[in-house]
Design a protein around this nucleic acid. Structure first.
Lengths: 176, 176
DNA sequence: GTCTATATCAAGATAGAC
DNA sequence: GTCTATCTTGATATAGAC
């Protein structure tokens, strides 16, 4: 039986996780059902349980992959002339490209012990570095970026609102 | 049959909305079922439909009330010496006192046509005023406040993180 | 490792009697 | 305006045969 750390998944389990990721990105978390995942793989839902213990394990694997990908898009931004702006732009692009994945990654408490080790830190590190090591300021910046992102995904800004301008105002404020 | 604007609800419908609000605040949106609401009122679930068209109308009424309450706690903050800090503190207190209501109010697109007229504007106006009328900046500030709030509610900050400090850093940045 | 059959649960909403 | 009875849908997960 598969364990929960993503790196230790069997090849077949990874296929199932990949199918689940596709289904999530297409239909959102509400559409992510064991039946739906199984259908994409070409098997029946109960067969999934031979490879993964339960639906939570499936979600955790997707989330863990998401953090690794976020860390990967952050890495080059740190080397730019204006790291904070580049990080913000990368963050925004990531959420825009994978809105349902982004929701899954942020809308629930992290089960940190079930993620790939270091995945969260790899994504958080660049932000702390970009603000000069002040972790309080880094959290404020993250809150701003997440707020802009999730309020947009939730359709909470008025139609026609200039969100580029709002992002710029926020980044400018935090750049000091 | 009841219409959707909260002010036009019948007295019995208002009783049902009040019960729903209690249930929401206790169990969250996932626990807000028509059966559960009915039980609190002392009737059976199908009877609710004689007073409100569907579950969405129930939620819209709760959300509309929430905006009115948020506007009410904002009003005195505007008169303070440091309006931005006071607004942020009021926002944080509101969300902390009514976490499930806060989620319901922010996690989905607003059906603005079904809210009490002016409810959203009454809550947004003070923020715009506090930043000197710059709507882009106001959106950035709101995003920061929402980000801090929802990331805390979602349990996303590390245990022991000094969130007072993060709030202060953010407000300081936006105060300029 | 896959299947069928099933247990279990819970939800929103409607029909029609009273 | 309330009730009982029911429809319809959908979910996670288990048992046990092959």
């Amino acid at each position: 039986m598969a364990t929960s750390a993503p790196d230790q998944l069997s090849p077949r389990a990874r296929e199932i996780v990949a199918a689940a990721r596709e289904l999530l990105e297409q239909d959102g978390a509400a559409g992510l059902s064991m039946r739906g995942v199984a259908e994409r793989v070409g098997i029946r839902a109960p067969s999934i349980y031979k490879h993964l213990p339960d639906k939570e394990a499936l979600e955790d694997a997707i989330i863990s992959d998401g953090f690794a990908e976020l860390a990967a898009v952050f890495a080059p931004a740190l080397a730019a002339r204006d790291p904070l702006s580049e990080l913000a732009a990368a963050y925004r692009r990531f959420a825009s490209a994978h809105p349902h994945l982004y929701r899954l990654m942020t809308e629930r408490p992290l089960r940190r012990e079930r993620l790939a080790p270091g995945a969260e830190e790899a994504a958080a590190g660049p932000v702390i570095a970009a603000v000069g090591g002040d972790e309080h300021l880094a959290r404020a910046v993250w809150a701003f970026a997440h707020g802009m992102t999730i309020l947009e995904l939730n359709g909470r800004f008025p139609p026609g609102a200039d969100l580029d301008a709002a992002w710029e105002r926020g980044i400018a404020a935090f750049r000091g």
